[in-house]
Design a protein around this nucleic acid. Structure first.
Length: 490
RNA sequence: GGCGCGGUACCCAAGCGGCUAAGGGAGAGGUCUGCAAAACCUCUAUCCGUCGGUUCGAGUCCGACCCGCGCCUCCA
């Protein structure tokens, strides 16, 4: 039984989907006014883990992720650049897709864009007006919070307790109550707007998620995810709009992932600790090492991003890669060592039990590393048969449908991924994915010749040269193994 | 002020009432190796922010306190 911590109620509870075997999932997507930073990716990777694990447990998933392509920031950005909204947001949408693939995140089933769903939003606002939950003021339409008594249930907020914030937003005209929020914003000079039956204007921030989720998932669906900062007001407002309009429960389970901080502090451009994915990759790190790091801390815990932690993540992932390489090299037939099957089963049980428990990734990973720890000694003593090694490798392939931290064939082909290759003794013909340059191959071959001639000075010089190229050599009994490594530690 | 999160070894991080406190990284010694690397073996928290309490028994429950952090209408 899978259990999740539901923000609504604040407790870990059994997960029971509305339709057996099916999960309807909505995750808050990017506002495409800029490139995402690694904190955004932390959230998307958490959602990917969630999704992959649900699939692993046999669920079919219908995943919707919105693309917010009209809001204050996209409008401001487009104006500043003197281009249309569509032209302004397009590169960010494309970059989002690229980075998502780079991080091995499965695409959603639907990526509805706000600008493509104006009629649905208008319809929803119309319903709210008709039902008396909304009112007009100076061309804008607001949601009247005091008509929705359940307001504040998700975030456990009492409106009276809210610290009165600065109310200098020029968009806010006269509202009945300070906390009422805009469903529809009156047109302003120079801003894009739509002519609709509820009047000209553009949608408020929250309405798109309510309108698009109902379209693709129905009035009530299973899971809604986002960052903790979305709890209030965004998700609170979504609940108010959706439940007021539809008269039924909006979402059964809310999952919120905690923030990522850098060196213990919130990322900010002024502090110089603000990283986008490209900034990290530019330092030579493998994107899947980044994925591993962002994945390996429980989603409800604040994640402190440091390059030291990234180095540790890389090493941990390397240990898995080395282990898989060693499995590949097993050629022996049989053995009377300890049986492998129980070790694999124990690992699988631990892995599933961990993730079943509100995605306890640490427990799941511990089970995986324990398997490595148990099999490596057998490997070292030559007590693993080829068949057994294949079984262990198959297990890793199985769990990697969830973790997705191993080089995938497509990305490995680009040669960016640290992956063990293997060169038969003396020939340096490399096999296996990962790719290595022709000069690299030639150097390995030269070094093998030098070693055969006991010219160790030359051999070591070549090894250093390859290291400078980011290639580490490991001399094994039956040949030389190479792997690519990232930037130097420290 | 309100709501919430966290403080477990040198670092990261599980455990949340009961065997010798997971796992990863780093470090020390050893085996293997031409040397390395990887792997293996051994070691590295009598103790889980502090002080009380409950209990036969507490990082694990209760209370108080001390730190660090997040949100309170831009924000994953």
């Amino acid at each position: 039984m899978i259990r999740f911590h539901n923000t609504l109620g604040g407790e870990v509870e059994d997960f029971v989907p509305i339709e057996p075997g099916q999960v309807k999932l909505y995750t808050c997507g990017p506002t495409v006014y800029d490139f995402p930073h690694i904190g955004n990716w932390r959230a998307y990777i958490f959602e990917d883990l969630l999704k992959r694990f649900l699939a692993f447990r046999g669920y079919k998933i219908n995943h919707v992720m919105n693309i917010t392509d009209v809001d204050d920031k996209t409008i401001r950005g487009a104006q500043a650049r003197g281009v249309g909204l569509d032209e302004y947001t397009r590169p960010f949408i494309e970059a989002f897709g690229r980075d998502r693939d780079t991080l091995n995140i499965l695409p959603a089933d639907h990526y509805p864009r706000a600008t493509a769903h104006i009629p649905e939003m208008v319809e929803l606002v119309k319903t709210l007006l008709e039902k008396g939950f909304a009112y007009r003021r100076d061309g804008s339409i607001y949601f009247a919070i005091d008509r929705f008594p359940a307001y504040g249930r998700l975030s456990k907020i009492n409106l009276e307790d809210l610290r009165p914030g600065s109310r200098g937003d020029a968009d806010e005209y006269e509202k009945e109550s300070v906390h009422d929020f805009a469903l529809w914003k009156a047109p302003k000079e120079g801003e894009p707007f739509w002519e609709t039956v509820i009047g000209p204007g553009r949608p408020g921030w929250h309405i798109e998620c309510s309108a698009m989720s109902v379209k693709y998932l129905g009035k009530t669906f299973d899971l809604h995810c986002g960052g903790v900062d979305n709890i209030f007001p965004h998700h609170e407002n979504e609940i108010a709009q959706s439940e007021a309009a539809n008269g039924v429960k909006f979402v059964n389970t809310w999952l919120h992932c905690h923030h990522l901080v850098v060196d213990g502090e919130k990322m900010s451009k002024s502090k110089g600790n603000f990283y986008r994915l490209a900034d990290v990759l530019a330092k030579g790190y493998d994107p899947l090492d980044v994925r591993y790091l962002l994945l390996s801390t429980h989603y409800r815990k604040m994640l402190n991003f440091t390059f030291e932690a990234l180095d540790q993540a890389r090493t941990a992932r390397q240990r898995i890669g080395d282990f898989l390489g060693a499995l590949k090299d097993v050629s022996g037939t049989a053995t009377d060592g300890a049986p492998i099957d129980p070790l694999i089963e124990a690992a699988r049980d631990g892995f599933v039990a961990g993730l079943d428990d509100d995605l306890n990734i640490a427990e799941a990973l511990a089970a995986v590393f324990t398997l490595i720890k148990n099999v490596n000694p057998l490997l070292a003593r030559g007590e693993v048969s080829k068949e057994e090694a294949a079984k262990v490798a198959a297990f890793f392939a199985e769990i990697d449908t969830v973790l997705a931290i191993k080089p995938s064939p497509t990305i490995a082909g680009s040669g960016k991924i640290a992956k063990g290759g293997y060169a038969a003794s003396g020939t340096a013909s490399v096999s296996g994915g990962g790719g290595i340059s022709a000069t690299g191959e030639a150097l390995i071959a030269d070094r093998q010749k030098a070693r055969a001639a006991k010219d160790f000075a030359t051999a070591d010089a070549i090894r250093r040269e390859l290291l400078a190229m980011g290639i580490v050599l490991e001399d094994a009994k039956d040949g030389v193994r190479w792997k690519k490594v990232g930037p130097p530690k420290g």
